[in-house]
Amino acid sequence: MIDLKGISKIYGQKKVVNDVSVSIAKGKVTSFIGPNGAGKSTLLSMVTRLLDQDSGDVLLEGENILQSPSDKLAKKIAILKQSNNLDLKITVRELISFGRFPYTKGRLNDKDHEIINEAIRYMELEDFEDRYIDELSGGQRQRVYIAMTIAQDTEYIFLDEPLNNLDMKHSVQIMQILRRLVRERNKTIIIVIHDINFASCYSDNIVAMKDGEVVISGKKDDVIQKQILEDIYEMDINIECIYGQQICVYFDEHKDASVDDFIEDQVHLRV
């Protein structure tokens, strides 16, 4: 369980995160959603001690994270940021091996290699493991970073937009792996995600943010509501139930001749 108590961050005059207090339940997938610039990444960085907050506390199982030694925390929480670029001559396997650093300080044993192999398998990176990461596609590279985070094997895993650059198949695969980690190993997973339908289908809880504040936080069905989402995103959103899942269908109903003519043409052609 992680408790955020009155967290704020100010850049210049602007409160980009404003007095946020939420609890993140253990053993669940919690998704943070909200428009660009809502403060999701900033909040995640503060919760994982990458960034100092201007006020407020983060309690990890009752203990202030700034009071725990960094190397101990690294065995408990792992964070993957939204964008990662490394200008290093480093291979896929070497980078994933860094996930074991908190435990081994650089000297890998058999168990570590096993965990690394498993992470490679999870992310289907067997074919690339000896390639340099700057020779991979964007999506392949993203999977390497996720594998590194999984190899860190922490109770709490934070992923900021893990589906960046990924194709449909791998997006679904990763969400299924995350669910499996929760089910089989009782991990707690916190993600930032823009695809509202992925959030709706795969999370237990959702925290919706806007303008640095938490608009609502709760069970996913309490958050995936037409009125709430329309307020957050300032657009028309319809929610349909498909195969027992709440699916959002969103398109702008404001009239725009050039686009709407095109859409209408398509409809006529099909009929």
Binding site: R49, L50, S70, D71, K81, F98, P102, K105, G106
Partner: peptide
């Protein structure tokens, strides 16, 4: 070894427990 981690940049290094 911690130099190897520092080469990954501040965020990765902190995440991996380097002070």
């Amino acid at each position: 070894h911690s130099l190897d981690v520092i080469a990954l940049g501040r965020d990765h290094a902190v995440n991996l427990g380097v002070n």
